[in-house]
Design a protein around this nucleic acid. Structure first.
Lengths: 214, 214
DNA sequence: CATTAGTTTCAATAATTATTGAAATTTTAG
DNA sequence: CTAAAATTTCAATAATTATTGAAACTAATG
């Protein structure tokens, strides 16, 4: 019922090891290591990446000590890593009857993970910039160079907002419809091209972003 | 014709300061500082973020010393920062007749910047993972737990590939069509919902990702 | 072809960020 | 309420990453 349970180390029974050190298979090991390395590029630290990767592959929830064991991390690191993952909703707490330790697992739907990641990055990487840009646009422009700067800032703001609005729209789709839309990709483009031809608009049409000197 | 040119410092004329230290307006300063701070979240360093921000707002190409001046960075940092931006195609080299220094400016089209950024992140953050996942999927699964792990890896691989394929499709659109598509966002979703209703598929339809225990 | 203005490199150092592990805290069970 | 087990915190330290600036290099000029 509770295979991972480690009973208190009884010194008289040599067979009952204090903690059967949790080992990862070479496959899992490679996966975990990759996520650790990529972590830094994804803006999460190695520890967090590794913990996530291990839980993602696990066929059952794991408790903190298993994780620390398998990844040879300190208990403290694991605790902080799990806390961070939890704050991102990338791990969920589970409990095993008769065991008071916290067990963790990752959401099973890969799409939900992806959504969470995008959402989080938006919050951290885009929203603050949108706020700043808006503030700067309210500022009175004193000279010509500032007026030029504000034009550039306005253009940037507009593009980002367009994207985030679109993202907000897409976020409302459930996983299946999102899939449909992605699979449709090519045909959406074709439809747009067709519409353009029907309206007699040629390739010569350019965006307003082309203004300015050559 | 060439306002930014600083002539060689003639020691006999005291009015000709060796380098009129380039100063940013408070507006530009705030913008530059923000990009510096965000830099770390975007996976670029502060220096690079600041240099880019300054050039983005500039109404004319700037040379390295102007940049070092305005941002109080060392010449070495600016050189390295410009090199990195150039490798990302986020700055372009310009030359002023009669001046042998290199001048830099950013692409004017905000969309092109966005594309470059996405492209770069894909290369650095997604492609290596796709490669790793494929490698791990080729590995023979020895036990049940590895077989389970490979299923999870396969699911992840499939989702990522779907996204990158879609991205490749979208990338082929020119700026105008991309704008159209974004503005269409809501209506694309509506069309999908309509199609579903016509086909008699209700809300009860779930994705295959819902398998597994509650 | 020597001089000079400009650029790049890179080893040293500074700044930042991650990780540990002992101590404090919380939680559960008796 | 107390003891035992588990978790979390946080100051110290390790590891990593960014930045500087002097020296090497490059290219244009007279």
């Amino acid at each position: 019922m509770n295979p991972g349970m480690d009973m208190s180390p009884t010194p008289d029974s040599p067979a009952a090891a204090p903690s059967p050190p949790f080992r990862l298979s070479p496959l899992a090991q490679a996966f975990v290591l990759h996520f650790g390395e990529m972590g830094s590029r994804w803006g999460i630290n190695r520890t967090v990446g590794q913990i996530y990767a291990m839980l993602f592959l696990a066929d059952a929830p794991r408790h903190a000590e298993d994780i620390a064991d398998a990844l040879t991390l300190s208990r403290g690191s694991v605790s902080m890593g799990l806390k961070e993952l939890a704050s991102w909703n990338l791990v969920q707490l589970r409990h095993v009857p008769g065991d008071r330790r916290d067990y963790y697992e990752t959401p099973r739907d890969v799409w939900s993970i992806f959504r969470t990641l995008v959402e989080e990055r938006k919050k951290r990487e885009i929203d603050p910039t949108l706020t700043t840009l808006r503030t700067l646009l309210m500022e009175p422009a004193t000279d010509a160079s500032d007026r030029f700067a504000q034009e550039r800032i306005a253009a940037m703001h507009e593009q980002i907002e367009l994207l985030t609005d679109w993202y907000a729209e897409m976020r409302r789709l459930d996983s299946e419809r999102l899939l449909q839309l992605l699979r449709l990709g090519e045909r959406v483009v074709k439809a747009l091209e067709f519409k353009d031809r029907m309206l007699g608009r040629g390739k010569a049409v350019t965006t307003e972003a082309d203004h300015g000197r050559t």
